[in-house]
Amino acid sequence: MLTCQEVLDNLSCYLDGEGSEELRRELERHIARCAQCFVIVDTTKQSLRIIADCEPFEVPLATSARLYERLAHFFAGLL
């Protein structure tokens, strides 16, 4: 069976659905038995979901407006 450190090292494989069938089965087996690794895997998965859902660092409206202004200037200069 994998050690907790090995579970941690392969956490991304597990979350991204990569790695061999065998490795994934071993990870599942460990997580089912180890409360600590279960929490780490589960909360990392939750973290990524929450981060993606809340769309952090959106472009401020004024920043976006100035971008189009600058591009318009640039194109005008090309004429």
């Binding site: 600590q36 929490v39 589960d42 909360t43 939750q46 929450i50 859902d53 809340c54 952090p56």
Partner: peptide, 23 residues
Amino acid sequence: RVEEWYANPERHYAAAELKRIVE
């Protein structure tokens, strides 16, 4: 930190607050 989290913990925060926490 290896304590369990609340189920759907993001629901404990208003959207703007959650975004601030994440950022």
